[in-house]
Nucleic acid binder design. Structure first.
Length: 496
RNA sequence: GGCGGAGUAGCUCAGCCGGUCAGAGCAGAGGAAUCAUAAUCCUCGUGUCGGGGGUUCGAGUCCCUCCUCCGCUACCA
């Protein structure tokens, strides 16, 4: 087991409001980070914002404010949302950070000096009003596909990262590291792409005259870096000034990304690191997208899910639970209110919430003794899964983890029926104590098991169980329990 | 076009290297219990595991082919 875990999310581009896709990546990364902390690793969990580029400059211009003012405002929105989603990131990087910019410039210099970057002239179809190049095949009847106006054939000098040189090396790397790109379907996509196409060199600059909102190239101040180059480097630069010192955080343990930016990470970023002579991250995991009631989420359809609406209605715990339980992580998922409600009522309110409620109520009603000295064999259920969890979390199989946890919850409900404490209360107080202690201990354990997914619900369970110092780790039988502190509260997941 | 996925009970889906794999949850029907958020527990599925062919003692599970749906095909965050 690695002693450290460096987990990243993509840097979100701050030209639009955060939506469910952003929230999804965050929650998955957060759950992984919390589990890693729980299992005793040193964790650095990083997220942040990508703030350079044409669209930001345009957005700021349109509002008549500076890019900096614009991004400051947007960054606030993202940070607020992360707080509301219980995201426990250890750092927040902005590509406009001075330290980041310095790292980018120094790495660019290094590549330039190594001969990995070359100036070339690029000829292409340029749409003057939109200020951007189009590829020949993207043109629609010879005109700009975005605005339909005439494009011009113009020549522009730019700097290129000589990515093509790494094609074979990258194929070989991916082949010999089966865990590098996950899930396998994404790995296949990348390999298929690399094997069937010739990798080109990567244009990494824009003339300042055309785009000023960027990091100037250290070897040619007339240019700024093109966004991806700048943004990707965040993963590395953060280890130098945001991460806790005294630990070698690079290479990252896991880059969590959406499938839309798979190529950028698996091809551009990997080859950039090869060019720099830096180790590649251990894993790049690309998750799927959410559709809404079967349709792709889009503004024009008016079906964009605003995370905060759901959080306000159902609570952040249920929201986090649903996203990670509903689909196997990596695949696309469908979001429908019906399914959300079904998960909420069945899994959360009926199975888990009611279990807590009935057990605490029986303990206060029947006044058994707390007696962990005679486990009922039931404790094994919770102990047996810890090995599985390590493996399942390692593969980011969040829904399977929850399945395993709910096996315990469900069997606890069965155990209640089988042992019928309401009868034992009249006939066999020793057995009653044994049964209710088992259930109590199981709940304590479940509280710790759900912590990575639902930190708030976990804390509330512990509060009601009267476990005052639950500790970070996964709870063991008889760790800190006793009935005296129990404070039965409102339903954990109230039905609506 | 090329490459790669998916097609399993009404719904959502698990099924790794071929032999209790024909499953789970939800929905539906009946019953038990009463501690609990009318929450729980038990019982009930005649599904050609998309069609066809093949390999094998034996195939959702491997090979071929066909049908349907989907993804990727970069240098636009």
């Amino acid at each position: 087991m690695d002693e450290i875990a460096y987990i990243t999310t993509p840097l979100y581009y701050v030209n639009a409001e955060p939506h469910i896709g952003h929230a999804y990546t965050q929650i998955a990364a957060d759950t992984l980070a919390r589990y890693c902390r729980q299992s005793g690793k040193k964790v650095f969990f990083l997220t942040g914002t990508d703030e350079h580029g044409q669209k930001i400059q345009d957005a700021a211009d349109a509002r008549g404010i500076s890019p900096r003012e614009h991004t400051d405002e947007m960054v606030g929105k993202f940070k607020d949302l992360w707080v509301k989603l219980d995201i426990s990131n250890d750092g927040f990087i902005r590509t406009t950070d001075e330290e980041h910019k310095e790292t980018v410039r120094s790495l660019l210099n290094k590549l330039y000096e190594k001969g990995e970057i070359e100036k070339r002239s690029y000829t292409g179809w340029y749409c003057v009003p939109d200020e951007r190049f189009w590829r020949e095949k993207d043109l629609e009847e010879g005109k700009c596909p975005e605005c339909g106006r005439e494009v011009e054939r113009i020549r522009e000098d730019n700097y290129f990262f000589l990515m093509s040189a790494y094609q074979e090396k990258l194929i070989e790397y991916i082949n010999s590291n089966p865990g590098y790109i996950k899930p396998d379907i994404r790995r296949n996509e990348v390999l298929g792409f690399l094997k069937n196409n010739r990798l080109d060199d990567l244009c990494i600059s824009r003339p300042k005259s055309r785009l000023s909102w960027g990091i100037p190239l250290p070897f040619d101040e007339n240019y700024v870096t093109y966004v991806w180059f700048d943004a990707l480097i965040n993963y590395y630069s953060a280890t130098g000034y945001i991460a806790p010192p005294g630990v070698n955080w690079w290479p990252a343990t896991c880059h969590l990304i959406g499938k839309d930016i798979l190529t950028t990470h698996s091809v551009y970023w990997s080859t950039m690191l090869m060019g720099l002579g830096l180790p590649l991250p251990r894993k790049i995991f690309a998750h799927g997208w959410w559709t809404i009631t079967g349709e792709k989420m889009s503004k024009s359809r008016g079906n964009v899910i605003a995370p905060l609406d759901l959080v306000e209605q159902w609570g952040v715990n249920a929201f986090r639970y649903f996203l990670l339980r509903q689909v196997s992580f990596g695949m696309d998922g469908n979001f429908s209110e019906e399914q959300f409600i079904s998960r909420y009522e069945t899994d959360l309110a009926n199975d888990l919430g009611n279990l807590l409620s009935r057990v605490l109520s029986m303990i206060s009603k029947y006044s058994p003794s707390y007696d962990p000295s005679r486990p009922d064999g039931f404790e094994k259920l919770s102990e047996d899964i810890s090995g599985d969890l390590e493996e399942l979390y390692g593969e980011l199989r969040f829904s399977s983890v929850l399945d395993r946890i709910w096996e315990i919850v469900k069997s606890a409900n069965v155990y209640v029926e089988r042992s019928a404490p309401w009868n034992l209360a009249k006939s066999d107080t020793e057995r009653l104590s044994q049964v209710l202690t088992s259930l109590y201990e199981t709940l304590g354990c479940v509280a710790s098991l759900i912590y990575p997914f639902m930190p708030g619900a976990s804390a509330e369970m512990n509060r009601q169980l009267g476990i005052e110092e639950p500790g970070l780790g996964i709870r063991r039988w008889g760790d800190a329990g006793r009935f005296g502190n129990i404070k039965k509260g409102d339903p954990l997941f109230p039905k609506k």
